[in-house]
Amino acid sequence: MAGAGYISGLTTARAAGLVACERCGQVHQRQNEVCRRCGAQLHSRKPDSLQKVWAWWLAGVITFIPANIYPMLLTSTLVERSESTIIGGVFELIHYGSYGIAAIVFIASIVIPLLKFFIIAYLALSVHRHALLSQHRRHQLFVFVEFIGRWSMIDIFVVAVLAALVQLDTVAAINPGIAAINFALAVVFTMFSAQSFDPRLIWDENEAAADD
């Protein structure tokens, strides 16, 4: 029973000379390269995790800027043609008194993407530095970012539904603006960035401290 002894003091698989499959959880000897159970590639830690995190993060930030500058919706009615950006759409909703919906759009399209950029950057920076927040807090932040990432896509779907439905000739027509593409890309890039982050890096400093 080589394995049993490792458990009592809460050891990591890596410290025990083992590697756990990221996909199915099966534990292997360190030298194995492919998971015997599910066939996935085995990595003790995701290779080049932080490098990928930063690359996708930067791509996300770059695409998020035009997403907020250019119009998301092009509306034309009998009397006027107007273009609205993401934040412009929020103000419009407030103007019409739909405060709840304005809050949803504002949170999903502006607050959450910005929060994700800050949290991912903080998590990546704090791996090799002394961190202000405890490991548990940072782990919670990671779980939050991973969970919330996809929900930013709401605004893209709103635009899709509006543009498909409101095509009433001269009375009213809504079309998607160029910002929709930028925004969708920003969401996808940040999702990749969060997925590239290996949460085990947060906990690895314990091991390093134990080795000293």
Binding site: V27, H139, F142, P199, R200, W203
Partner: peptide, 8 residues
């Protein structure tokens, strides 16, 4: 092993 912190 825990998928988030590698603890056995």
């Amino acid at each position: 092993a825990c998928p988030h912190c590698d603890t056995l």
